[in-house]
């Protein structure tokens, strides 16, 4: 059964997410009514931005596969731009960076045509070798090594990793009740829910810091609590939204919990190195787009390859 083109399980999952947002908005209204003197601007902006993000995402997912792939390629563009704007680059690399941007439409074209072999090697092999070739032709050798490293890291994180979300939409459908939209919903929801769970467990029980130098608010209690919650949740939700059975769902949950944590702290380390708090100001209440995509950059490829190995 499908509603508005969306297979039923995915449709119910979307309704559940909208339900959570309604609860969040109501809670915020209740809080500001109860404590009129407290400033809830940031919480309000944050929830409002969530509404926008979810609305946009659900619209493109409901539209069709190509629209969703174009949308995700645009996310890659915004993420790559934000990353290259904050990390050290040389003025002489402008033309090389221009080519790095061009890798986005090409990579997503492989995704849209379902050419798996090319999708998986285009950035790690061709772009990896090509960008330094272009740099050599410009000929500025001062800072060459660092620059080549930064650029390759940038396209791997922002183009290669994020394009795995899009390739989930291109895989053959194995769970008819959820469709491929279910895979994307599962990945994104579990990743974001993991962030929330780690935060909540950390607030409730957090005592022992994991990596105080990078992220003073991250604790072992939050990390383990979040990981267990997500693992259990993923076990139960996976059979509904993905082709994975319960025990494989648990595996996916462990992967998302671990990878989500590391994605978060890896991007935190980048910001700490640059001595900035947010990577941009695109999303009110959240910061830049990387502040929202940090965990997904790590969970997307790892979940994808787990799924690919287990079912395809």
């Amino acid at each position: 059964m499908t509603f508005l083109n969306i297979p039923q399980n995915s449709f119910y999952a979307m309704l559940a997410v909208l339900g959570l947002l309604v609860i969040a908005s109501c809670t915020r209204l209740f809080l500001s009514a109860k404590n009129p003197n407290k400033d809830y601007t940031e919480l309000r902006q944050r929830i409002q931005s969530w509404w926008w993000i979810i609305a946009l995402l659900f619209l493109v997912l409901a539209a069709n596969r190509i629209t969703a792939i174009v949308f995700l390629s645009f996310l890659s563009f915004l993420a790559l731009k934000e990353f290259l704007s904050i990390v050290p680059t040389r003025l002489t690399d402008r033309r090389v960076i221009f080519w790095a941007y061009l890798s986005i439409p090409v990579q997503y074209y492989w995704v849209s045509m379902g050419w798996y072999g090319m999708f998986i090697i285009f950035i790690p092999v061709y772009v990896f070798l090509f960008l330094p070739m272009r740099m050599v032709l410009i000929g500025d050798t001062a800072g060459f090594i660092r620059s080549a490293g930064v650029l390759h890291w940038a396209v791997m994180l922002m183009v290669f990793s994020i394009s795995h979300i899009a390739y989930l939409l291109t895989l053959p459908v194995k769970n008819v009740d959820a469709g491929n939209v279910g895979l994307v919903l599962f990945l994104l929801f579990m990743t974001q829910f993991n962030d929330v769970c780690q935060y909540i467990w950390g607030k409730m029980l957090g005592k022992h810091k994991i990596i105080p130098k990078v992220s003073p608010n991250k604790t072992w209690e939050g990390f383990i609590g979040g990981l267990l919650t997500i693992t259990l949740c993923a076990g139960f939700v996976a059979p509904l939204l993905t082709p994975l059975a319960f025990e494989y769902g648990l595996g996916a949950g462990v992967i998302i919990g671990l990878a989500g944590f590391f994605g978060d702290v890896v991007l935190s380390s980048v910001k700490r190195d640059l001595q900035i708090k947010d990577s941009g100001s695109l999303i009110p209440g959240h910061g830049g787009i990387l502040d929202r995509l940090d965990s997904v950059i790590y969970t997307a490829p790892l979940f994808f390859h787990f799924l690919y190995y287990a079912t395809y």
């Binding site: 290259l84 704007s85 904050i86 990390v87 050290p88 680059t89 040389r90 003025l91 800072g143 640059l274 001595q275 900035i276 947010d278 990577s279 941009g280 100001s281």
Partner: peptide, 8 residues
Amino acid sequence: CLTRHSDK
């Protein structure tokens, strides 16, 4: 500025 560290 957020992007000021990007020039070296």
